[in-house]
Nucleic acid binder design. Structure first.
Lengths: 363, 363
DNA sequence: TTTACTTAGTCCCGAGAACGAACTAAAGGG
DNA sequence: CCCTTTAGTTCGTTCTCGGGACTAAGTAAA
């Protein structure tokens, strides 16, 4: 149970102020109204934040009547952190400032079968020139994570790894998180979404669920692993079982289906190009996936009832071609009226994951 | 955002103390250790609670060395509330004290097709003699509820009802909640479970999910409605769609399957009697359901990753006969090692629902 | 019996946070 | 020039907890 001592309150209120300012400049009076804090309390906290260089005063408002207010905004670059995505094929490292702007990014692939040790050592080399500076480094990977231990990452082929010894070599605070959960957390952090499901759909499928502004973890960190919900399929899954939804909805199945229709593509990228050129077989295969996804989203809606769904991972690039069949299928299969028009959108940031794990915890 | 003023802290700490005492008598020193509060703070709060008659001092501890402590416990009956379950077939009304003891209970059935107005008016008549006294009255029903409005209850045949006008006639605070969520909340309240899934399985199937000590609601209150996850079945569901899991896992399907095997039973109760007498067909039908449920629980585990699963509703009575096949099937289908031995237990309270909705909010 | 030690619980004061009222600041309108 | 309105500050009040000094009540050993 929380201690609730008075410092804790101050920290909470500081955070509340910063959270509001992350969505745009506001005056002290605005903040007082938004947070419910007394004007005096806001003044004190803002003074402190100005002093620390986290905030800046900017332009004045010009209300129809009354004294103009002073707009406050976050000082750009005052805080930033690193995010590292350990994907199946490559590693992406990026720096984000606290408004969610990408300061820089770097990406590299690695030898097949590279283990966690090699991959983290390479990463360590990459970040050393940037340290000190960042508040911390957040790692994401497609697997079940609990307290800096990796339980299982079928698509990486990793299992039961305690990463704490490796992480301790990094000369800055680190945080480890599942990729979908990290993505969902970023949406909360940068856009204040309170009920959201973030799909990371590439080879695998993972869901990051935010409910009531909190990430859903469950007891062992496996909540949201709907990619491993057992459907009725018969294909073997990387996890060793048979019929996981990810074998039907994953992009591997898309490629396979395309080929079974007679299409020729060595990789997903080629299939995407075909779709962009309007090739009928490619569009058919993608529509087929869209239908399955729409039905899946109807199920997702009864499981978590999000207010919005974001589709990330490689599938985001296919979204324009998926969209129509997906929405139709979702509307046709929805349980509640409200789910028919559930907002679904692709992740906005292209292939750059905007995953800033644990940033809040670095503050 | 929360105001975080100083009174709020006191309330939180009071609650923390009461929550600990709900699980057994403790000394002030114990409470200080458990809550992390200073001894002095505990003393002050306990004094206040004693003054209000919520607590009583009891026996002394006799430690091997040192001064004995004074055990504190909740004063029985000091607080109680009413819970009303609006089931498909009948209404149950009960009074629970804050330790979760059932003070009294009453149950009645109602004419087929009775609407919400009739059912609530009958209930109002029943509770009038007990008012004032209870802290409040919590309603539960098998449907999607959001802010005292009922969106959809397929098995009741109700839809889009704003119950606030009816509830306002009740001369005490009321709270409305989905039955599975209410059950799950009761587990949290009385046993302090932090990660739990509570299945209400009778005709329908609903899940109450508690993650990190908070109930999972989603944006529109429909989170956990896995009974309406679309599987591969072809049976029509009360919700108007086809293939919902509830058509496979609901007890209606059990009865049907039993009959298709050649068994004779007019109702579930008869089937249960057959099972108690060891009739082979009945046991076979139940095992079959157990297998399906085990597979479902493996899926539930990837969706929510609970630390414990409680099976309530009518299915609780079938649990002894379900248990073995359910556990085997769960172990066979589990995604993570940890899920293989996921604790599953029947609801402890027989047919009496221990649902004390909104009790916490009544304090 | 006395003393040392241990744990339980009380009392009181100080620190920190927010609140709210009174105040100053800076505009527009008549 | 004054009135009204809104922004923001200052200061005194109130409330909470924490922590140290203290008392209370037991066991163990000298």
């Amino acid at each position: 149970m929380r201690k609730g001592d008075t410092q804790e309150i101050r920290r909470l209120n500081r955070r509340a102020i910063l959270a509001h300012l992350r969505r745009g400049p506001l005056t002290r009076a605005d903040l007082s109204r938004l947070t419910g804090l007394a004007k005096s309390a806001v003044s004190r906290l803002v003074d402190e934040l100005l002093q620390e260089g986290l905030l800046e005063e900017g332009a004045f408002t010009s209300p129809p009547v009354g004294r103009p207010g002073t707009l406050l905004h976050l000082r750009p670059g005052a805080r930033f952190a690193l995010g590292a995505e350990l994907g199946v094929e490559e590693t992406v490292l990026l720096a984000l400032d606290w408004r969610g702007e990408v300061l820089w990014a770097k990406e590299w692939s690695h030898p097949r079968e590279a283990g966690p040790r090699e991959r983290l050592e390479r990463l360590l080399q990459e970040i050393l020139p940037h340290v000190p500076g960042p508040l911390g480094l957040g790692f994401t990977l497609p697997g079940v994570v609990v307290e800096d231990r990796l339980l299982l990452a079928p698509n990486l082929g990793w299992k039961n790894l305690d990463l704490r010894p490796l992480l301790s070599h990094f000369p800055l605070p680190t945080a480890l998180e599942n990729d979908a959960k990290a993505s969902a957390l970023s949406e909360v952090f940068f856009h204040g979404e309170a009920n959201l499901a973030y799909l990371v759909l590439s080879t695998g499928l993972g869901i990051g669920v935010v409910s009531d502004s909190r990430i859903l973890r469950g007891a062992g960190g496996a909540a949201g692993e709907l990619g491993h919900w057992l459907g009725q399929g018969h294909k073997p899954c990387a996890c060793g079982r048979v019929g996981c939804l990810e074998t039907e909805l994953g992009l591997g199945a898309l490629l396979e289906h395309y080929r079974s229709l007679g299409g020729k593509a060595g990789a997903l990228e080629a299939l995407l190009q075909q779709a962009k050129q309007g090739e009928a077989l490619a569009l058919e295969a993608i529509h087929h996936l869209g239908e399955a996804l729409g039905r899946f989203l109807a199920n997702l809606a009864v499981a978590y009832d999000p207010a919005r769904v974001v589709i990330g991972g490689k599938a985001a690039e296919f979204f324009p071609y998926l969209e129509q069949s997906l929405r139709q299928s979702l509307a046709a299969h929805a349980f509640l009226e409200a789910h028919r028009s559930l907002p679904v959108q692709p992740s906005l940031y292209g292939h750059l994951p905007r995953r800033w794990v644990g940033l809040a915890s670095f503050w």
